[in-house]
Design a protein around this nucleic acid. Structure first.
Length: 310
RNA sequence: CGCGGGGUGGAGCAGUCUGGUAGCUCGCAAGGCUCAUAACCUUGAGGUCCCGGGUUCAAAUCCCGGCCCCGCAA
């Protein structure tokens, strides 16, 4: 089929790569404009743009998706179907209805669960045993379109958003091809979602990473994994921000949430609302990430020291 | 020119403002103690204080230039 691909981050680039290596024709690619990023002010190109350019596929990166010039170019590519993978923008009806087969979306959850911007992270945060990928037709309501194909995947006990993302990306690329083949053959039948079963996975914010020590240790540990690689779980120690990259759970406790109950070669143990959280790998602001024992080598822990109060 | 922090024995850090014998925790080596131990005690090895200039009687510390790392913000 003749396809226009819309996407932005690395996960999307993997699907695009797969499409480019298939029998389908990618007529054009749409991605987010390069934005100044990084420590200096360097303009960083989105992964999808890099992939497209490596393959010599024309790229459009409109500031506004309703820009008439862009819509004209999109129409000129004459797609039979538009494939959308983590593009990062709500598409207007004019685009949803532009191609004969409409817009096909790859969503990284088992819809109707986890509709929204951060389905992978929330699946980890909520301690789900399984997640997956869903392909569906885009409609105007967020992630509510009819489902085409779906595939499950089990989460590991130490799953992070980063690791799950990495697992899901190739599965999504594969499911995308299957879906396209099914559409061509007329064998996949759209199935309406049961809206009553829908749950939402809102976009994460920087502040979400701030650890609430009143939560149970196991909940905090899941958040540490869910917020990896972004925004990263963090707390405050001696007035400085301390990121928590990895942690583990221990049961017993009898101290105020946030208080350091033990600091030895086994790690840095902090009391929570329920149970004790062992910090395994941390990073003080402006410092490199280090193991708990290395961190403790350089800090002096006073009796009653605690996390939380900045 | 987005804001800011940092580069000190193998690791993590203090010391830099108020120049003058390089310090702490850990690791490592040797010895001791112990039924025993990642425990404890003693001793020891190990450092171009990122690089290059400058100021000074004297620079980890002050000044100029460079390289590298990191946090914030995007």
């Amino acid at each position: 089929m003749r396809i226009v691909f819309m996407g932005t981050p690395a996960v999307a680039a993997i699907s695009l790569e797969r499409l480019l290596n298939s029998e389908h024709t990618v007529a054009g690619v749409v991605t987010q404009p390069d934005r100044p990023a990084g420590r200096g002010q360097k303009s960083i190109a989105a992964p999808v743009r890099k992939t497209a350019e490596q393959h010599g596929v024309p790229v459009s990166a409109p500031e506004k998706v309703r820009d008439p010039a862009f819509l004209g170019a999109l129409g000129a590519w004459a797609p039979e179907i538009i494939v959308v993978v983590a593009y990062g923008r709500i598409l207007p009806r004019s685009i949803l209805e532009l191609a004969p087969h409409g817009c096909l979306n790859v969503h990284y959850s088992l819809l109707p669960k986890y509709r929204g911007a951060a389905p992978v992270a929330w699946a980890v945060i909520n301690g789900e045993a399984k997640s997956g990928v869903t392909t569906m037709h885009l409609v105007e309501k967020m992630d509510a379109g009819p489902i085409l194909l779906q595939r499950e995947i089990a989460l590991a006990a130490d799953e992070t958003t980063a690791s799950l993302q990495a697992k899901l990306a190739p599965v999504g690329a594969e499911l995308l091809l299957e879906t396209l083949a099914g559409i061509e053959a007329g064998t996949v039948k759209p199935k309406e979602q049961d809206d009553a079963q829908a749950t939402y996975a809102p976009m994460l914010k920087k502040e979400d990473g701030l650890v609430d020590w009143h939560l149970p240790a196991r909940a905090i540990e899941r958040r540490v994994r869910g917020f990896n690689p972004w925004p990263t779980a963090y707390s405050h120690f001696n007035g400085q921000m301390l990121k928590i990259h990895r942690a583990k759970v221990e049961s017993a406790t009898s101290a105020a949430p946030g208080e350091i109950v033990r600091a030895d070669r086994d790690g840095l143990w902090v009391a929570t609302g329920e149970g004790v959280l062992g910090l395994v790998e941390v990073q003080l602001e402006n410092r490199k990430r280090v193991s708990a024992s290395e961190f403790l080598n350089g800090v002096r822990i006073e009796k009653g020291a605690h996390f939380g109060a900045a």
